[in-house]
Computed example of a mutant assay.
Amino acid sequence: MQLTGKITPETLMSLEAYTKWRKVHKPEVIAHRKLRSVQLGEHINVQFESETTIRYQIQEMLRIEKVFEEEGILQEIEAYAPLVPDGSNWKATMMIEYTDINERKRELAKLIGVEDRMFVEVEGHGRVYAIADEDLDRETDEKTSAVHFVRFELKPDMCAAVKAGAGVKMGCDHTHYPSHIDIAPDTLASLAGDLK
């Protein structure tokens, strides 16, 4: 999978080429995704996206749905490409995970607005709160969604600090889910690569 900085139909593999590539490289992509995942408390998993993860997601959708016509390919790109970070931000899929269905229903009702209370904090700088669900509203008056898409927009001095090795905390200050964690150095090194 060649990273080009922009996902277009021309930069994607054909279904045949991808099937061959996938057999060899799937473990690498899974390891990359795992490296870029931050577990916040027991029930929130934040997976920071990259061109690699999104390119893989698009190729997987095309493979599963057997899409090879340009219109369908463009629809998949349009759906997923906005999740690729663009130099001044981190973009992530935030999953609220409860295995018990009744507990999940109860907790999602308590966690309305949790996506807006997610933050990153670069050492020496203030908190940057998530801009959540720009594609569509993912909550109702009764509950929040188990999946949200969040973006953390960093100022140039924050980007420079991260690239220079500053630590970063991730947290949530929602009343029903107060939690924070230092992002692990290897994960942070991968995230620093997203910044210009």
Rank of each mutant, 00 (worst) to 15 (best):
D135N: 11
E107I: 10
I181T: 15
C172Q: 06
H125G: 05
L108V: 05
E10H: 06
G72D: 03
K105Q: 14
K110Q: 14
K169G: 01
H32G: 02
L74E: 12
Q47R: 13
M13T: 03
V114L: 06
S88I: 10
E28H: 11
E97C: 15
V38G: 02
R22N: 12
K26A: 14
I54N: 00
N102C: 03
N89H: 09
T53H: 01
V122G: 01
L35S: 07
G87E: 06
D157Y: 03
K105V: 14
A17Q: 15
V46N: 03
I77V: 07
V128S: 04
L195R: 04
T99D: 15
I44F: 01
A164G: 09
A161R: 02
N89A: 13
T99Y: 09
E71Y: 02
L111P: 01
R127M: 14
M158K: 07
E153G: 01
L195I: 07
T4Q: 12
I131Q: 04
H32F: 08
E70K: 12
L108N: 06
C159R: 07
H148K: 05
K26F: 11
G167K: 14
R22Q: 14
K155W: 00
E60Y: 01
S14G: 12
R127K: 15
T187E: 11
E49F: 00
T175C: 00
P178Q: 14
V150I: 14
Y80W: 15
I7G: 08
E65T: 05
P27S: 10
L35T: 12
T140N: 09
M95W: 01
Y80G: 04
M1P: 03
P82D: 08
P178E: 10
S50M: 03
I101D: 10
A109S: 14
E16P: 03
E65P: 00
V29R: 00
Q47D: 09
G167E: 12
R55L: 14
V114S: 05
S88C: 07
A130I: 02
I30F: 08
G87S: 05
R104A: 15
Q59C: 08
H43I: 08
D116I: 02
K91W: 00
I112S: 02
D194Q: 13
G72Y: 03
V162M: 09
K163N: 13
Y98E: 12
Y56K: 01
V128C: 08
R127T: 13
E65L: 13
E97V: 15
F48D: 05
R22M: 14
T140I: 13
D157Q: 12
K6P: 04
Y98A: 13
R55V: 02
T53E: 00
H176S: 15
P156Y: 02
P185Y: 10
E134N: 08
L74M: 10
E51M: 09
R117K: 15
Y129P: 03
Y80L: 13
T19C: 06
E51H: 06
M61C: 09
M61L: 10
A92W: 01
N89L: 09
E51T: 09
S50C: 09
A164N: 12
T93N: 09
A132I: 05
E139A: 05
V114M: 02
G113E: 07
